[in-house]
Design a protein around this nucleic acid. Structure first.
Lengths: 328, 328
DNA sequence: TTGTAAGCGTTATCAC
DNA sequence: GTGATAACGCTTACAA
């Protein structure tokens, strides 16, 4: 079934059938004839032919570092919902944390296939900047702020500051488990937020009380172990993510310490597992899903020609639970 | 940049350039000229034109009920890895648990856009069967067994049986939290496995000790509450998934019961949060990611014409941890 | 309001 | 081995 056959059956030219689907410059009479034929045949225009002809694919490329992470899958859920609403399809590229693949996909998508790109970023190098600059389609960065590009990101600094403020009430010897400082959002900004809270609380800070971790719960577990082997008497631990906090919490409890009486713990992100954990984890809720929707909307705007690079900073909400001492 | 310009620059016909990329019937001399021009210009053939011409999109549609679920995102990770290796792109359709959308996407993908479909199923109705039957491209069902279709699924019955066997050693009054029986894999098969273990253990069974839950941890929490309000003296609870088990575990501990001394608990699926939970959750590891890869491979075979519907049943591995009494 | 005709950028067939 | 040439199925001037 192609447009020619439909045209023949409806007794019109194929241009009219095309108009029926597009501009709509068709008389009521022919419109009816065409509709009838379409219903009978179940005809759908070929997306490939449309793509070739119009240079629009109605597909968006979404590049992510890892799909099985709660924060990322929540963002993807938001992107997916917003794109579906707008009639776009989502081309998913999971780089499994390989920077090189991120660049490859950026190039692949740009050359072909998609009308726009959403990049969920962790570490953005100069290479990334160059690749982004060379893009022929609009792009939005999600999860990181990047000067000069449209991006949607969390208020990592203030979120961490609030979480840490809550953590530190009644604490004397704070510690911190963070991630690589090359990740400006989760690594650097959250650490800064924590340090600022320490300063405001008038507490001493010693770099020995900082431990760097990977993103997994197991990483958090080991980081806590390392941290306490150096500083056995910490009484509060800030963790850059909930997942890390969960691992840390496990180790701390196993070491015989009580949470929050001996050691208070907070995370950032408010993941499901943190809510189930006992004691339930005090955390900062980040609107990951909404940020995904926001990124998609921003991209759609960009694709319609609004060429000004815009930034959206998301809000947050402190969730005080049982892993900290006070009411925040 | 299109094939015509490349042909002109290389001093050959566009047919030769096309052959350069495809069959390869090109003399070494022209091959060199073409390669040079391609490198200089960075030319890439238009995917859209290729799609239109060849009727192949090199894109696979993946339909999932929900992206932010650990089991599903692990499957998607596997699919993604296998497809990338084979040079296919992944078109993601998240139905957010709406059956209707599942059918819509099945239709959309079939009419257009993709060379094959992977459907991560939960509930498969007669409508699904009809939609699958009407497909014009090969499809693989992941996570459910469906007679007459290629599918990759977990050994839910035996996995549940093993988990339950471990749970029941030393138990007298078992309970069960399951999901809707319309989900043949997670609902029905796992429940059957549990019941068989009860039978083999020579224990009494009373339907009052069964409670039905949604898929979330909060659902498991409430299901446990309902279950124990009816049967306060249960000493072992089987949960259809780890997520449910985590919720149940929380409620049980909060109710003042000790795990596993007063009540033993098992889940199925071996999710990260179950490993971190204290006590760590005894569970059955299911190879979700591998099953995703397997589904993708099966689909690729199908697309190459191997038209026999094949079934792959995945293995499992019992993970005995601290939420149960014995060594399994 | 409608139809004709010219592409979009490829690949496939067929002669040479 | 290579080059014309005809599709693939659609959209869009332009003419009527």
């Amino acid at each position: 079934m192609n447009i020619n056959e439909i045209a023949k059956l409806a007794g019109v030219s194929r241009a009219t059938v095309s108009r029926y689907f597009n501009d709509g410059y068709v008389s009521e009479e022919k419109r009816r004839q065409i509709r009838r034929v379409i219903e009978e045949t179940g005809y759908k225009p070929s997306a490939q032919a449309q793509m070739l002809r119009t240079k629009k694919t109605r597909q968006i490329g979404v590049i992510i570092p890892k799909i099985n992470s709660e924060s990322i899958s929540r963002m993807v859920a938001g992107i997916s919902a917003a794109l579906k609403e707008a009639g776009f399809l989502l081309l998913l590229a999971d780089t499994e944390n390989r920077e090189k693949e991120e660049l490859d996909y950026l190039k692949l998508f740009s050359e072909n296939q998609v009308d726009g790109i959403i990049l969920i970023g962790t570490i953005l190098t100069t290479e990334h900047r160059r690749a982004l600059k060379g893009l022929t389609v609009p792009a939005v960065i999600l999860g990181q702020r990047l000067e000069g590009y449209s991006c949607v990101y969390q208020d990592d600094y203030r979120a961490a500051l609030e979480a840490a403020r809550c953590l530190l009430s009644g604490a004397k010897r704070p510690g911190c488990i963070g991630v690589t400082q090359r990740d400006l959002a989760v690594g650097k900004a959250r650490r800064r937020g924590f340090l600022e809270a320490v300063r405001r609380a008038g507490l001493e800070w010693d770099e020995g009380a900082y431990s760097e971790s990977g993103f997994g719960a197991e990483d958090g577990y080991r980081a806590a172990e390392r941290l306490f082997s150096r500083k056995p008497d910490l009484d509060a631990v800030f963790c850059a993510t909930d997942t890390i906090a969960l691992g840390a919490l496990s180790w701390i409890q196993e070491s015989g310490r009580r949470v929050p009486e001996d050691v208070a713990v907070v995370g950032v992100g408010d993941t499901v597992s943190g809510r189930i954990m006992r004691p339930a984890l005090t955390s900062v809720h980040l609107y990951y899903k909404t940020s995904g929707q926001e990124a998609a909307r921003l991209l759609l705007e960009l694709m319609e020609g609004s060429d000004s690079a815009r930034e959206v900073k998301m809000g947050f909400r402190l969730e005080v639970r049982r892993s900290t001492r006070s009411e925040g």
